[in-house]
Design a protein around this nucleic acid. Structure first.
Length: 698
DNA sequence: GATCCTCGAGTTCC
DNA sequence: CTCGAGGATC
């Protein structure tokens, strides 16, 4: 018995190794040694042995890619190092500008770039600990995505264990996609089974990855290619991006075989052209090529913009265009009353989807492009997402009434329409009297980034407004379940759910509430600044804007003078809020109806202060500095921390909140690891102080 | 006064 | 995602 078990154990191990190694040859080296049927035979044998000897089962076995029950929803996964997007370029001129910026910042002649195709799939992040795949997440908004670990485990191109000597921690980033051939076969299967076909490989991949039941994902032919490293611990990094990619391939992660190292602008242009010509011959869809400065020291020097690294660019292929006809030009009314003309199009398949609407932005845009009703036009998807009318291909019959004229009254509420001098937008003057604006205001109030009220969608809002159950956002908090249950498509249960969701939004951070008010020009960021300054709605409502404007001006003059003397600047008052925004705020807050709504909301919501930046953002936090930071001196780092109210200590203890570690960090870093203190590199540190806020916790 | 950057607003499709 | 406008900076 035990001899049998031992024999089975060694066979099982041999089979697992063989299968992993064939996966590696197939997905990473693209050079299979055995046929698919031979592979299937090995797999079957392993499955049989494991069912005969269940004690040999292990989660790391290739047969155990599907595990766990279907989820009811994905949990969110935090990206410790944000997953950024890339800056785009569409022309040689833009590429030239990119190359020039890089050369100027690095003070170098010809730059070496690492070039790769830009896959048209979904970005994911894979976390390996001691070589084992432990977590996979979608990109989401860049700082938090969805935890899709169980689904990614079913993707055979993703190794469950890394090969060879693996680092203690590795976060690999890459793209999940579907090959065109696999996509075609999947659609044949879907239609044979009477299921809905997918419209393009990208959507098929996205839909497959977002399945709550991993058994379904397992049946979808997904692929993965790695293109970068998010986080790596306990490993000295290679010196160049191309070497990092080679390293990832060596660990068993598939990396595009189309990657090259090219030299200078000329090299980039040639690669772009070359990939463009081979686009149709590749087994997967790409929408451009990506160039990254190859030397990592230069990458660090170049650093980051708000959402994208300065050392990389995506050179897109020209968007696919299609011709179709303009059936009508309608006018929509937005949250701030903006009238937006929208082209209703004869449905046309372009860039992987069927397009029926396209925004025409405003009157000037229509005039500039000379678009009339009935015209045949070129349509494309700008950035491969938003449909856009590029230009007229052939004019229609063009009778006088085919010409677009901006209506003189709001199409929804019939109020007069106004176009201010120097502005592109035409606006409805109806304000909250206009049902369209009321609806949009409520939708904005409930939206995810504002008060995040689940279940308050377009259909419900429409009825609430039409039945006058909600005129302003405060009314939401007084809604009775019976009233809500009377609406279309609403039973007692969903009515209660909605009421619960509304109640759950009480206590949300002040910054969200200010943003939710929908004051013109006051978005998420500005709302945070206001919340941080006033800390409560009474203060905001009573603010003396004339006085604040004066104060700000004198502070700016002061700082200009300090700068000339080489002194550090004082923290700016209400940063990013200038005369225009102050004016907008003053006007809004002057109206007694707005004030009444705000004060009532203050009572109903009782906002908290999470997510709020503060003058002393690091108050109470203790930092320890160790090693040499790449671009700043220790004194400068210390100054920054202290300016934000933090303390800098000499040694690491349980009371230390953060250790900022640079090159050649020594014992302090080790101690921090041992104590589980958060460790930041210079970049992470800059991110932290840039945010300057109390964690939102959402 | 020019230029760079960030933020806000509007938008499409599944 | 893109455009335009406001704000910051030189």
């Amino acid at each position: 018995m035990s001899a049998n078990l031992e024999a089975a154990r060694s066979r099982v191990n041999a089979l697992r190794e063989a299968i992993e190694s064939h996966n590696y040859r197939y997905y990473v080296l693209d050079d299979p040694e055995i046929s698919d049927s031979e592979y299937d035979r090995l797999f079957l044998e392993l499955q049989q042995l494991e069912s005969q000897y269940p004690q040999l089962l292990e989660p790391r076995s290739p047969t155990q890619r599907v595990g766990g029950e279907p989820l009811s929803e994905f949990s969110t996964a935090e990206h410790r190092i944000p997953m950024l997007s890339l800056g785009n370029a569409f022309s040689e001129a833009e590429m030239q500008a990119f190359d020039r910026r890089v050369r100027e910042s690095c003070d170098a002649g010809e730059i070496e770039y690492c070039a790769e195709p830009k896959f048209d799939g979904l970005a994911v992040s894979l976390r390996y600990e001691s070589g084992a795949f432990v977590r996979g997440a979608t990109r989401g908004d860049g700082s938090r995505g969805e935890d899709v670990t169980n689904n990614l485990r079913t993707v055979r191109a993703i190794p469950l264990r890394l090969r060879g000597a693996s680092p203690p921690v590795l976060e690999a980033r890459g793209e999940v996609l579907m090959l065109r051939a696999d996509f075609d076969r999947l659609n044949e299967r879907q239609s044979a089974a009477g299921e809905k076909e997918f419209v393009n490989p990208r959507n098929a991949a996205a839909g497959s990855l977002r399945q709550l039941d991993p058994r379904i994902t397992a049946q979808r032919p997904l692929r993965f290619f790695a293109y970068g490293i998010g986080d790596v611990g306990g490993q000295s990094m290679p010196r160049a991006h191309s070497q990092a990619l080679d390293w990832l391939a060596g660990l068993g992660l598939p990396v595009s075989s189309e990657r090259r190292v090219v030299s200078g602008l000329q090299g980039m242009l040639e690669y772009h052209q070359w990939m463009g010509s081979r686009r149709g011959a590749l087994p997967y869809d790409i929408d451009g090529v990506v160039f990254k400065v190859n030397a990592l020291v230069m990458q660090e020097k170049l650093g980051f913009l708000a959402r994208a690294p300065r050392f990389a660019v995506a050179y897109k292929f020209p968007a696919e265009e299609a011709t179709t006809q303009i059936l009508a030009i309608d006018v929509q009314v937005g949250r701030s009353g903006t009238l937006t003309p929208v082209a209703r199009l004869k449905p046309v398949f372009v860039g992987g989807v069927t397009v029926t609407n396209a925004t025409l932005h405003n009157e000037d845009e229509i005039r500039r492009k000379d678009i009339w009703r009935g015209d045949t036009v070129f349509v494309r998807r700008a950035g491969d997402v938003i449909p856009e009318v590029a230009r007229v291909s052939r004019p229609g019959a063009r009778a006088a009434d085919d010409r677009f004229v901006m209506p003189a009254t709001c199409p929804v509420c019939r109020s007069a329409v106004i176009r201010l001098e120097g502005e592109a937008a035409t606006r409805c003057t109806g304000g909250l009297f206009c049902p369209a604006q009321r609806k949009q205001a409520l939708l904005h109030f409930a939206s995810r980034r504002a008060m995040d009220i689940d279940g308050l969608g377009e259909k419900i809002v429409e009825q609430l407004v039409e039945k006058s159950l909600a005129v302003s956002p405060v009314d939401l908090y007084g809604l009775k379940p019976e009233a809500v249950a009377g609406l279309d498509r609403m039973g007692g249960k969903s009515a209660q759910n909605l009421i619960d969701a509304i109640n759950a939004s009480r206590g949300r951070p002040l910054a969200r509430l200010i943003f939710a008010l929908g004051i013109p020009g006051i978005g998420e960021e500005v709302a945070k600044v206001l919340a941080g300054h006033f800390e409560d709605l009474d203060n905001l409502v009573e603010a003396d804007w004339g006085g604040i404007a004066e104060q700000k001006k004198s502070l700016q003059r002061d700082n200009a003078a300090r700068k000339r003397r080489g002194e550090p600047a004082l923290p700016q008052l209400l940063e990013g809020i200038g005369p225009e925004l102050m004016d907008s705020l003053a006007k809004f807050l002057h109206e007694s109806r707005n004030r009444a709504v705000i004060m009532a909301l203050n009572e109903a919501v009782r906002p908290g202060l999470a997510g709020t930046p503060r003058g002393a953002a690091l108050a109470g936090k203790t930092f320890v500095l160790t090693g040499t930071l790449p671009t700043m001196t220790r004194d400068r780092a210390k100054g920054l921390i202290e300016a934000l109210g933090g303390k800098v200590a000499g040694s690491v203890s349980g009371k230390t909140d953060y250790v900022v570690a640079g090159e050649d960090a020594g014992g302090k870093l080790e101690k921090a690891r041992a104590l589980g203190v958060r460790i930041l590199d210079e970049h992470g540190f800059m991110q932290l102080i840039k945010k300057k806020e109390i964690p939102d916790g959402r």
